[in-house]
Nucleic acid binder design. Structure first.
Length: 230
DNA sequence: AAATGCCGCAACCGCACCAAT
DNA sequence: GATTGGTGCGGTTGCGGCATT
């Protein structure tokens, strides 16, 4: 069983097979496609590299902001974060966080785990415990929502998909229904309404404010269904 | 020009979860 | 309810390229 970097020939084989047949059972795929790889390796290669709906290259400022905000809400739940960043894979987001964003936050004096200023480890900079509670509550709500969304996606996968087409992957990873997606975006939008702008800093003067320092705006700017999780 | 260190990314590994039996 | 197989997720590693000495 081969390991290590994929060759262009292997990529071509995998791509050609999936385009023609869909991936089906990943375990059975390598044999059918004539690859000396395990199914897991094929799956990873497809998801993280070969999928045609993947956007590669530099992350935009907007994307960076989204990642930071969602990480504050969700922690290291990369797959959940990736659902908010179309065309980006969880692996790519994870790598970008670990190599760029984490260091940047650290440099700014913000703990990349708690997203709070390191000098104020116990609570928000407002000194208002309500803010921390709101953030925690929001995170719980979003977490529950994401789980429900994931369930819906799983259920939708049970519906027989169409025969493989050029965009066969859309059958494997169906687009969220209007019933679920807008709500999800609303949460993010609301959250961005609170935090947005704080990361549009000028890297040259480093004149920064902690994102948590304005959390007190949340009470006025959001009307989230906070009670839904309790 | 060569050696060394650092960084970023692709890929692997181990574990958890879920559905089928 | 226990077991098993398939899949997904997050953490970690290894390697190649680039920068520095």
């Amino acid at each position: 069983m081969k390991k290590g970097p994929w060759t262009p020939e292997e990529d071509q084989k995998l791509l050609a097979y999936i385009e023609q047949h869909g991936h089906g059972s990943w375990r059975a795929l390598p044999l059918k496609a004539g690859l000396q790889r395990c199914g897991k390796s094929c799956r990873l290669r497809w998801i993280n590299y070969l999928r045609p709906d993947i956007k590669r290259g530099k992350f935009s400022l907007q994307e960076e902001q989204t990642i930071i905000q969602l990480h504050a809400l969700l922690g290291n739940r990369w797959s959940a974060i990736a659902t908010h960043l179309p065309k980006r894979t969880d692996n790519e987001i994870k790598n970008y966080w670990n190599t760029h964003l984490k260091k940047r936050l650290t440099k700014m004096g913000i703990d990349p785990v708690t997203h709070k200023p390191k000098t104020d480890a116990l609570g928000s900079t407002t000194g208002n415990p309500k803010d921390a509670a709101n953030l925690s509550h929001m995170a719980q709500w979003e977490s529950a929502r994401l789980e429900a969304e994931a369930r819906l996606v799983r259920e939708s996968k049970l519906v027989p998909s169409n025969p493989p087409q050029s965009n066969h992957f859309t059958a494997v990873v169906p687009s969220p229904t209007p019933a679920t997606r807008p709500q999800c975006l609303d949460v993010l939008k609301a959250w961005q309404g609170v935090v947005c702008g704080l990361f549009t800093f000028n890297m040259d003067n480093n004149n920064l404010q902690s994102p948590t320092s304005t959390l007190n705006f949340m009470e006025n700017t959001t009307t989230l269904p906070m009670s839904s999780s309790s």
